[in-house]
Structure formats: structure tokens, C-alpha cells
Simulated scan of single mutants.
Amino acid sequence: MMLKILFVCTGNICRSPIAEETFRRAVKARGLQRVIQCDSAATHAYHIGDLPDPRTRKNAESHGLQLTHHCRKLSGEDFSVFDYIVAMDYYNMENIQTISARSIGIKQSEENCFLYRKFDNVLQNKVMEVPDPYYGNSNNFEEVYQIVNRCAETFIDFLIDKHHL
């Protein structure tokens, strides 16, 4: 069994690439890379083919991560390839559902398409979204890193329990 996870944000240059890479590192640390794979995508085509935002890459490097992902847009095929599609915020969740309805004729179930912050054990004021750091400063990029890094561990626990890994 191979589980495939897709992390999604607006442009695939800030939140979803760092979510992808922190998750990949956590998967590798647990020796699960043969049963769990991940990727990331955008709901909009603003940055297709680009590397993640330089500020995202700088933050990732400060945590020992190298981001080499090239931005891509969510496609209809993704709904049949990935077992879980994980949105960074409500806006992107709505866009995922719209793309799904247009591409394959149905919306995604809450069992396989949800907000990543659902797995954050340190929810502040019950905010379920990973904030978009694009218009912010380095502190905002660090906050996103901390959130997605926490979510990675809890999400893996969920996958282990649900799929008996």
C-alpha cells in the first residue's frame, strides 16, 4: 500500500512547499518513505514552474531543509492519484472543491480533503488555517514553518492509525 498526500495552497510558493518538505522529513524520520509519498500544488497558476518564494526557501534552509519543488497547478488527475488532498486555508479548500467538481464531477469528501491545521495540537484561538505569509516578514514564514512542522507529526500519527502502517 502506498499513500499519496498532496498539500495545496494558492500559489504553491509559500505554505504548501514547506508543508510538503516538513512532512517528507517526518515520514523519512519514521522510516515510512516506502509507504507514504507527498507533493504540493497550487489552486492558481500564478507561479507555475517557479521555485518556492525565496523567503520560504531561506526559512526552510534555516531548519535544514532544501526546497527544490517547482510550482504546479492542481489538476483533475490529482483527484485520482492522491489519497489525501490537504488545504492550507478555507479559500483553497473552496477552490479545491470547485476544481474537483469541474474536473471529475464531484466534490471531495471530508475524509480525504481537509484543512491541514486540523492536525495542529497548538491551535491558537481555534484558527484552523495556516496563515499566508506572502505579504508578511520573516516572522510570518517562521510561524508557518512551526505550524506545518507540528501538523506533520500528528498527521503521520493519524495515517499510521487509520491505515495500520
Rank of each mutant, 00 (worst) to 15 (best):
H70S: 07
I36P: 03
Q33N: 12
F82V: 00
Q97W: 14
A29Q: 14
I13Q: 00
I13R: 00
N92H: 13
T56W: 05
H63E: 07
C38L: 12
A101W: 05
F79V: 08
A29W: 12
H63C: 11
G105P: 05
Q37L: 15
T98W: 12
F23N: 01
A87Q: 01
N92C: 04
I18M: 07
L32V: 02
S40D: 00
I36E: 01
F79G: 04
A101L: 07
M93S: 06
D39N: 15
F23Q: 01
P54H: 05
Q33K: 09
I99P: 00
S75I: 11
L67Q: 04
L32T: 02
K107H: 09
N59H: 08
D50E: 11
D39G: 13
T22P: 08
I48W: 01
L74W: 06
C71P: 03
A45L: 02
C38Y: 14
S100K: 02
R34W: 14
Y91W: 11
H63D: 10
T56H: 03
L51E: 02
S75T: 15
R24D: 13
K58A: 15
T43Q: 04
E20C: 10
E20V: 13
V81W: 12
H47K: 00
S80L: 08
E77T: 11
N95L: 14
V81D: 03
D53N: 08
I99V: 06
R102E: 12
R72I: 10
D39Y: 15
A60K: 04
D50Y: 08
Q108P: 07
F82K: 00
A19G: 06
S75F: 08
K28G: 09
A41F: 09
E110Q: 13
Y90H: 15
I18W: 09
N95P: 10
G31P: 08
G31K: 07
A42F: 09
E21N: 13
G49T: 05
D39R: 13
K107G: 12
V27P: 05
E77L: 11
P54W: 05
T98F: 14
V35T: 10
E61T: 07
A42M: 04
G105Y: 05
C14S: 04
Q66R: 14
S103T: 10
E94M: 15
E61G: 11
Y91K: 07
D50V: 03
F79T: 05
T10R: 02
M88E: 06
Q66Y: 12
N12F: 03
N92A: 04
N59A: 09
G105T: 06
H44Y: 07
R34N: 14
I96M: 09
Q97A: 07
F82I: 00
H69E: 00
P54C: 04
S75L: 13
A41R: 03
A101K: 06
C71V: 04
I13E: 00
R34G: 13
H70P: 01
I36S: 01
E77A: 14
S109T: 13
R25Y: 15
V86H: 03
L65V: 15
T68V: 10
S16L: 12
G31R: 03
P17F: 10
H44G: 03
H69I: 04
G11H: 09
T43K: 06
A29T: 10
S100Y: 08
Q37H: 15
G105Q: 02
R72M: 07
Y46L: 01
R57V: 14
C71M: 07
Y90W: 14
P17R: 01
N12G: 01
Y84C: 00
I96S: 07
L65P: 11
D53W: 10
E21M: 14
S16R: 06
K107F: 12
H47A: 00
